[in-house]
Nucleic acid binder design. Sequence first.
DNA 1: GATGAATGAGTTTTCATTCAT
DNA 2: GATGAATGAAAACTCATTCAT
Lengths: 213, 213, 213, 213
Amino acid sequence: MTGTTATPGPRADMVRNRRLLLQAATEAFAEHGTEASMGEIAQRAGLAKGTVFRHFASKEDLLAAIMLQLLDRLIGTAERLVEADDAATALREFMTDGVEALATDRAFCEVIGRPSLEHSGVRDAIGRLCDAAEALAARAREEGTVRADITGTDIVLLLGGIHQTAAPLLTAQPQAWRRYLELALDGLRTTGAGTLPHRPPRHLHLTDLPGDA
Amino acid sequence: MTGTTATPGPRADMVRNRRLLLQAATEAFAEHGTEASMGEIAQRAGLAKGTVFRHFASKEDLLAAIMLQLLDRLIGTAERLVEADDAATALREFMTDGVEALATDRAFCEVIGRPSLEHSGVRDAIGRLCDAAEALAARAREEGTVRADITGTDIVLLLGGIHQTAAPLLTAQPQAWRRYLELALDGLRTTGAGTLPHRPPRHLHLTDLPGDA
Amino acid sequence: MTGTTATPGPRADMVRNRRLLLQAATEAFAEHGTEASMGEIAQRAGLAKGTVFRHFASKEDLLAAIMLQLLDRLIGTAERLVEADDAATALREFMTDGVEALATDRAFCEVIGRPSLEHSGVRDAIGRLCDAAEALAARAREEGTVRADITGTDIVLLLGGIHQTAAPLLTAQPQAWRRYLELALDGLRTTGAGTLPHRPPRHLHLTDLPGDA
Amino acid sequence: MTGTTATPGPRADMVRNRRLLLQAATEAFAEHGTEASMGEIAQRAGLAKGTVFRHFASKEDLLAAIMLQLLDRLIGTAERLVEADDAATALREFMTDGVEALATDRAFCEVIGRPSLEHSGVRDAIGRLCDAAEALAARAREEGTVRADITGTDIVLLLGGIHQTAAPLLTAQPQAWRRYLELALDGLRTTGAGTLPHRPPRHLHLTDLPGDA
DNA sequence: GATGAATGAGTTTTCATTCAT
DNA sequence: GATGAATGAAAACTCATTCAT
C-alpha cells in the first residue's frame, strides 16, 4: 500500500545529479556559448569531472542533449499551436516562445547558426522544428495574414535573427526582443509588396542546390 | 633635408609588417571568427609570433583594431549616404553594405552580438556608427518612409539580426540575406500600425537604466 | 544435516561470480595484455565493477590470480612430464606447451618479462616453475641430450624469448614460434661446444648477487 | 677570421634542449616502455610540457624519433660489417651490438614486438634493417657457417627474442643476454639437422599471405 | 625591431578505486 | 554481498603570451 514510491535504489542521487548537471550545463552554455568548458559545468553542478563524463560520454553529447531539450520544447509548442483557431495569433505565440527561449541561450545561436554541431539527433530535431513551423505558416498563408512565399524555415530562421538583433541590449534591456519581433511580424504581414527576393528556404543544414543567383 | 623619403630604414619595415598583419588578421578573423589563433595569423602574414605581439599587445587588441577598421568603413558609408537625395534608398544602401560586411566576417558578428570585446575604442566606434545611422534614420523618418519610432541604433542592431537570420544558409546560399533584408525593410516601412513595443534603443553596450518595462 | 548441498544461498553465487570473473579476466588479459581495463573485465563477466573489487582488492591482485592460474597449469605439465621415459621429448613438450601458452596471452608475456608484478604468490610460482623445469632439465642433462650447463631457469626464460622472437609475426603467421622453438632446441642440444658464457641462472625475480661478470 | 663558429642565433639553446629532450625520452622509454608519459619526459629534461610538443608534435612522433635513432645505428652497424672478411664473426658482432642495444630499451621490444607504432618511417627502417641483416646472413650461408634457411629477418627477430630471454634477469645480471646469444648462435650453426619448420620470414609487419599451416 | 623557442595554465577524456544504497 | 554512481588523479595536447638572442 505504499503506492508508487517503492523505488529504493541508489538512483535517487543519480537523478538529482543528472538534474544538477543539466541545469549547470544549460546555464553554462547559455552564458558562455559552446565554449563553456566541461570543467566549469562540473563545478557549477558541484560534481567531479568524471561524473559529468559518466552521464554524457563527450562534450558534444552533453551539448546535443541541452540543445535537444530546447528544440523539443519548441516543437511541442508549435504542434500545440497548430490546433489554434487564429493562425496569425498562433504564429505570433510560437515566435514569442521561440525568441524568448533563444534570448536565454548563447549556445543555441551558435548551433543553429553554424553547422558546427554534427549530431544527427540535433539535425533531425531542427528538421522537425521546421516542419512544425511550416504547418503554422501554411495556415497563416491560407488565412492571408502572412506573405504567400513565407515558409516554416523562414520562421525558424527569424527566431535566431530576432534574438540576435536584440542580443547586444540583452543585459540592459532583457525584453528588447519584443520590439524586433513586432517589426518582423509586420514584415511578414506585408502582403501587397510582391514576392521577396531569393528563393524561400526549405530546410536548414541541408546543402541545397549549389546555384545561388 | 629630412624629406619624406629620407628614412627608408626600420620604420618602413614596420609599416609594411603592420599592413601584412592587418591583412592577415582580417582574413583569419573573417574566416574563423574570434577563435582564429594568433599563430595562424602570424603564419598568414609571413611574420613571427613575436612580431605580432610587438604590434598588438594582445589578441584582444588586434581583434579590436580589425573591428575598428570595419566599423570605420561602415561609418564612412553612412556619412556619405546622409548626403543622398532619397533617404529611403540611402538607408537601404547602408543596410545592404552593412549586412554584406557581416556576411563575410564571422568575427564581426560575434563581437557586435555581445559586449564580449571590452575595448573603449570599439565601444566608441559603435556609438559613432549608431549616430551616423541615426542621421540616416532621421531623414527617413522625416520623409515618412520609415516608422516614426525607428532609431539609428535599431538600424545597427538589425544588421546583425538580418545576418544571423540567413547565417545557417550561408554556405549553401550565400545571398540569402537579401531575402531577410527585404523583409526587415518592409517591417521598417510599416507606418500605419502604431508604435512598436519597447522603448527605442539609444546606444549599444552602454548599460542602460536597469528598469525594463 | 549440514551436508554439502545444504547451503545454496549466497555462497553459491559468489563461487559462480568468481568463476565468471576469472574467465572474463583471462580472456581480457590474453587479448589486450595488462592494459585491459577493469571496466571491460567486469562487462565481459556480466558483473558490476564493485563486485570485481570485492573479489580482488586491486587490478594487480586480479592479474596475479590469472597469472597464477597459467603458471600452475605449466607447473602441472612439467611435473607430469618428469615421469616420461624420454627426457628430450619431455623437455620439447614442456617448451611447446609453454610457448604456445605465451603466444595466446599478451599479459603473461609482459608479466614474465619484467619484475613489474610485485606479488609474492607469482614470484613463488615462478620459482616453482623453475624448479619443475629444472627437474626436466636435469634428466635431459643426464641423458646427454642437452648441454651440461643448462638449468630449469634457462628453460623458463627461453619460453618468453622464443615467443618474443615470433611475436612480430603473430598476426600474419600465428605458428611461426615453432620455427624458433626448433632453433632453440638445436642450441640446447649443442653439446660439443663447451660451456656457455655467463653463469647459469638459478632463479627469476630474486635479486641475485650484485656482481655480474 | 672567427671561422665556422659564426652562428649567433638563438639556436644554441634549442639544440641543447633538443638534446636534453632526446636524452630524457630515450631514458624514459627505455625504462618504462612506450607508456612513459610526456609529462615525465618533460620533467626529466627539465623542460615544460609545451616545449616537448614544440619539438615533436605528438607522443607518437617522439617515440618514432627515438626508435629511428636506435634502428639507424643498428643499420649502420650491419652495413659496416658486411665488408668484414669473416661472415660468421660479422654476424656475431651484429647480433651482439643489437641485443646490447635492446637490453637498454624496453620500448624497442614493444615497438618491434607489436605493430602498435603506425609510423611509416619506423616501418621503413625496420625493413632496411632486415635487408642489411639479410646481406650479413647471405654471406654466412654461403660460408656454410649458418643454416641454409636462415634469413636476415630471422636474425632481426632473434635480437628481440634473445633480449627478452634475458630481460627478467636484467637488473640482477645485466650481461646475461650473452649467454642466450651464444645459445642462439649455436642453434643457427646447426647445419646437419635439416630445415627448420615454418617458412622463413621475409619481412616484419607486412601482412604475409594469410595461409599459415 | 624581428625572431621563434619556451612557458604553463587550460581543455577534453580515461580509469582504477571508493562508497552510498 | 551486489550494484553502479562518484571520484580525482593522470594523460595528451593547445595556445596566448613572454623573453633570450
